[in-house]
Design a protein around this nucleic acid. Structure first.
Lengths: 188, 188
DNA sequence: GTCTATAGTTAGATAGAC
DNA sequence: GTCTATCTAACTATAGAC
């Protein structure tokens, strides 16, 4: 693995666990093994540019993950439920584990007023994910208007349930979100 | 207003906008007018203790706000919808405004692995709010089991929609959440 | 291209004057 | 009780050797 990749991975790991502002560049270089200067060689924009790339990388990885998870089931109810339930089941080990995926909800709420660049990056990632949800609903026959509103609400519920689950240190909130999917999708 | 209160308010304002780690004690003392030493006199536990009190204060204020907003309408659908829609309508000015209420979702996702004390404080606040939602549902005739799961899911949707709204700089995600309330509550 | 050394600033915290 | 002065450690960023 290249020096650049090692820096990116170490940064992602630390941002995930500690957030953006609590993570120092010295910590990143220490964990990655790469020296201080390399970081600024590969990421001339410093911490902000590094974070942007890390967020975009997480964005791509999770997008692929959502796509594969959601397309395993034709029925949208089962598809969303199994995806969210997977998150719920994995939350305990996720808390302990050394994971490379940064929670966008964390970076977004930490940087929306601080860095326009990072705010826009988070907005873009959210947009990408939402379109995946939206497509699934469109393909399942929902009206375009409904598919959009619904996919935004589902995304909100997932992001919120994630934070609640991490705060409570258990997967119950994510499970509760999964349980509500049928009622959201079977619109009486 | 006492020195202690001035410190607490300035801290809340800054934590809301910048988050926990991005806010320095020097910034808090500068904004509050109180000198450095006073902060440690009133809050011997330093930044962490100050943040804990600020979170609890927000917890109480918002709990009272939710109670009043939610009890204006007997119908739970209308009650939740009007509360969430109020958040949506206020989000643009909320972003600009000097507000004293700290978003728990922000502090929680920033401190869950960093400070057990702050994590537990956030958990407690979430618990308080959820019970308000749950009571409303119980009073409306929902089964205890349903009321609990549903209130957790609604809370998740609100917290997530808040972050999405702040990230996108508009109230649409919160509005989308409000629109889904009828489908969540009218369980077919 | 890769890395070391360090500049310059700010962080949270404390000691002690009054 | 209130405030000033200051500590040490950490931060981001840069200059320049190799």
């Amino acid at each position: 693995m290249s020096s650049r990749d090692k820096i990116l991975r170490a940064a992602s790991r630390l941002f995930r666990k500690q957030g953006y502002h609590a993570t120092g560049l010295s910590q990143i270089t220490a964990e990655s093994g790469a020296p201080r200067g390399s970081l600024y060689y590969y990421f001339p924009g410093g911490k902000e540019e590094l974070a942007q790339e890390a967020i975009q990388l997480t964005g791509k990885r999770i997008k692929a993950y959502i796509l594969s998870a959601i397309s395993r089931e034709a029925d949208p109810v089962k598809a969303f439920q199994s995806y969210i339930q997977m998150m719920a089941d994995g939350i305990e080990e996720y808390i302990m584990e050394e994971n490379d995926d940064i929670p966008i909800v964390s970076v977004a709420s930490e940087t929306w007023s601080f860095s326009e660049r990072l705010r826009q990056t988070c907005e873009q990632v959210y947009q990408d994910w939402q379109l995946v949800y939206q497509d699934k609903l469109l393909q399942s026959g929902y009206a375009p208007e409904t598919a959009e509103t619904l996919s935004v609400a589902i995304q909100a519920m997932i992001e919120g349930a994630y934070v609640l689950s991490v705060t409570k240190k258990n997967g119950r909130p994510l499970s509760a979100a999964a349980e509500q999917i049928p009622f959201l999708l079977k619109r009486s």
